[in-house]
Amino acid sequence: MAFLLSLACPFASQAGTIMETSGKAFAPPAFFSFCSRQPSLCSTAGGRKVVALQPGLSSELKQVNRSVNSRITELSDQATVGKEDDWRVPTVSGDCEDIAILKKLELMKRGWPASALLLTVASYHGEGHTVLTVRTSEGDLVLDNLTNSVRDWSSTPYSYFARQAQGNGKRWERIGAAKPVKATATGG
């Protein structure tokens, strides 16, 4: 409930959580071939590392998440391209990482900084799962193809492994504990 309050009123007293990172991690294998084809979508350089989440920006996150989820049919890479793992920008169908990539692209087109949009891998029911983590003043929020809700990462059912490093999107970092957002977060 506190998270819902913070989205409705971005400056509510109870803030979300941020992902603490704890050292280097291995990137998913298909990530590197994707980056050679789409380097701008792998970038996490430049811009603000944390976006000050104003009500209009909160609405924009929800709109992008819902829009992409409704437009793209979830299908495995095997079904769509005949390979086990192939990261790409989907047009009609794709799997979780493809959908997360499209959400990053859509937000970047709207002016969101790549430095605050991090591809993130987790486990769900024993399977790998990829989401887009958005670093905000209200905490690290997850845009996910399995729900239209935009949630604080620590309020999801996933076990998180790693995410792109801010400032160097080709490097990945292990995810540790949830750390409360300081009430004085300014988005810088």
Rank of each mutant, 00 (worst) to 15 (best):
M1Y: 09
M1A: 10
M1N: 11
A2F: 13
S6C: 12
L7P: 03
A8V: 14
A15P: 10
G16P: 14
I18Q: 11
M19G: 00
E20S: 12
E20W: 06
T21Q: 01
S22L: 09
S22K: 10
A25W: 06
A30H: 07
F32M: 06
S33P: 00
F34T: 02
R37D: 07
P39A: 02
P39H: 03
S40R: 15
T44R: 02
G46D: 01
R48N: 10
K49R: 10
V50K: 05
V50E: 10
V51R: 05
V51A: 11
P55K: 07
S58Q: 15
S58R: 15
S58C: 10
E60R: 13
K62C: 00
V64W: 03
R66T: 13
S67M: 04
S67F: 08
I72H: 01
E74I: 03
L75K: 11
S76W: 01
S76H: 01
G82P: 08
G82S: 07
E84F: 12
E84K: 07
R88F: 14
V89M: 05
T91M: 10
G94Q: 03
D95E: 07
D98I: 05
I101E: 03
L107K: 04
G111R: 07
P113I: 07
A114R: 06
S115C: 06
L118A: 05
L119Y: 05
L119W: 03
H125K: 14
G126T: 05
E127P: 01
G128P: 02
H129R: 01
V131L: 06
V134W: 10
V134M: 08
R135G: 02
R135K: 10
E138N: 15
L141M: 15
L146N: 05
V150W: 04
S154M: 11
P157K: 03
P157S: 04
S159C: 00
S159Q: 11
R163I: 08
G167F: 09
G169I: 00
W172P: 01
R174Q: 12
I175D: 02
G176L: 08
A178N: 04
A178Q: 04
T184R: 06
T186M: 02
G188R: 13
G188I: 06
